[in-house]
Nucleic acid binder design. Structure first.
Lengths: 149, 149
DNA sequence: TTACATTATCTGTATGTACATATATTTGTA
DNA sequence: TACAAATATATGTACATACAGATAATGTAA
């Protein structure tokens, strides 16, 4: 649906203004789709983002800062996100030997299993994105990159 | 910058997956830019969104539901958003005469002045979006609409 | 008109978020 | 070495958000 109809606004000041709003709306739309996907698993979007980052590290530990660098939402409070994941016994945290300020984080088997289980529901999520061709998705990706300058 | 670099991820499962992440990242990027613009005025993004919707109604009252329909983030808790705006004396709320369940909201002069003052800083915000041509912005808008199906 | 469903909004609760500041450790430099 | 600056993370706080459920008013069908 056109953004004008989604928010019942039939006029925008200019194309950039419309784009900002369209972009915010679409971002929120995807955020909500993912939140819905994660709900049965009791994870928030940011927690899932962290788990996937950790999985990407394989058997290596990674610092809180490095996680933050890789997060989609860099404003998230990673310390407390990790707290939650430790509470749920999905990741382990230990103090780095060489730099005792640093916390080293790693995902454990339970965490890996959870990510795997969630990934098995990816089909449902992806079904919301059938309206774009591969070519259009590429074009959109490159326009988004360009938008951010 | 390319999304790969922004989040230090050099590979995506497929173009759609990359698009989801790019979209989330870009949405968050714009959200943060707007939050920064609003900070000196003590408003949150959603509060500002509501104020602009109210201004769009001119001298007419509008219900909480109708505001929600017009919001970018429809999950916001409009009742409490309005509470905040009433506390700040930017809007007025009254009970609808014909349907006493309904709350009628209207922006007042102080609210209008504040929106106007914020709009005078739009130039700073817009300066972040110079990298796209008008034509590209249009193309992006139509791809985003299409993405949501 | 009475009972039940529906609607519009509000409230309670748990959790998440943003941001300022604190704590602990390490680094750089005189 | 001593000490200020920088770094990595954690904590306090005020506020926002999501969602379930409550409350009150209205609509509807017998």
């Amino acid at each position: 649906m056109e953004i004008e109809k989604e928010i019942k606004q039939n006029k925008f000041k200019d194309e950039i203004h419309k784009l900002m709003i369209n972009q915010l709306f679409t971002g929120k739309w995807i955020t909500n789709l993912i939140a819905k996907q994660l709900k049965p698993f009791g994870l928030t979007n940011q927690q899932y983002n962290v788990l996937r980052i950790l999985r990407g590290q394989g058997n290596n530990y990674i610092s809180v800062n490095a996680i933050s660098d890789r997060m989609i939402d860099k404003m998230s409070n990673v310390s407390r996100l990790i707290d939650k994941l430790v509470d749920k016994n999905l990741v382990q945290r230990k103090v780095n030997k060489d730099d005792r300020r640093q916390a080293d984080i790693i995902i454990n088997q339970k965490g890996l299993d959870l990510v795997r289980a969630i990934e098995e529901t990816e089909g449902d999520l992806k079904s919301n994105f059938k309206s774009l061709s591969e070519e259009e998705a590429k074009q959109l990706n490159s326009l988004l990159d360009k938008l951010r300058g």
